[in-house]
Amino acid sequence: MMKVYKISKDKLKAYLSYLLNKGYSIYGPVKTTSGDVIFSKIEDPEHFVDEKSTNGPKSVVFPEREIIFRYREGKIIEEKSDERRILFGTRTCEIEGFRMLDDVLLKGKYKDISYERKRSNSIIVNFACTKACKYGFCTTFQGPKLKNGFSLQFIDIGDDYLVEAMNEELIVPEYFTEASEEDIKKAEENINNVYKEMEQLPIKDIEKKIKFNDEIWNKLGNYCINCGACNYSCPTCFCFDVYDVKIGNEILRIREWDSCLLEGFSRLAGFNNPRKDNASRLIQRFYHKLVYHKLNYGYYLCTGCGRCIEQCPVNIDIRDVIKYFSGGEL
């Protein structure tokens, strides 16, 4: 049963200090000296900000680069990490992404053990958004608030946060008090504001409307510079590369995020490549998100976070693609 509390904003940093002192590793959105908000390890509660980060928490459970094993003197030594951690201040679009990663990485015939270890050791403290972000379109999908998949969920209600607790693991009476009916109503209103502020995209049946044979792909292909920023910032992209590195007498097998927009992604030995041009690589990206994953899992591989739009240096915009194939102009 979910319980509802509230916590005063004044007490938030003290609460974070309390958790740090308890020995938890805490990751969350941190403002850097350059002003960027980066999801990273929180060493000092003062660095925490209640803002959507540029990168999101994906790399905590699915690192950009990690060692699968070390090979030394004919022996394979597995790399294991089992740090118990709190992801504090995630956004709904990010944790919804985790749920999608779980389907691919944990629910098939084979499990991604490395991901599972980090995922199952991560306690989620989600912050539901109460304001529409600039590029986001989450209301087209799951919306700004999680229904489940968290330990605590914070919702801004002015001077306090309403706190939904799926379990009591992180509830400390010193910081949390009873929430009133009025607080709950205020939280609902604030969440509904996001629905009012955000444009809903015509996503319905997009998998039936989108077409391979369309000038849009060459047009976007002419802009794309294969930087891969869309994939790197995406909370649902999971493709990875595997390669070996020699360091001294040790060989490391590494896995690292890959990008379907890079020329080498599908290139075989002998320079055969089923995807030779930008247009076909963009088709792969958008079809994976809007068609293939829908066919295989029943939902679109997108949480409307808007990061791919924000990060794209040439303004390729998934919202435009969705609207275009639903009968709009480009």
């Binding site: 990485l105 098939g108 015939k109 991604d112 590369d241 595997v242 890959d258 992604f265």
Partner: peptide, 14 residues
């Protein structure tokens, strides 16, 4: 196709 995992998760052989 190019394959990096062989077990249906790395995405290369789509």
């Amino acid at each position: 196709r190019k394959m990096k995992c062989g077990i249906g998760i790395c995405g290369h052989c789509n």
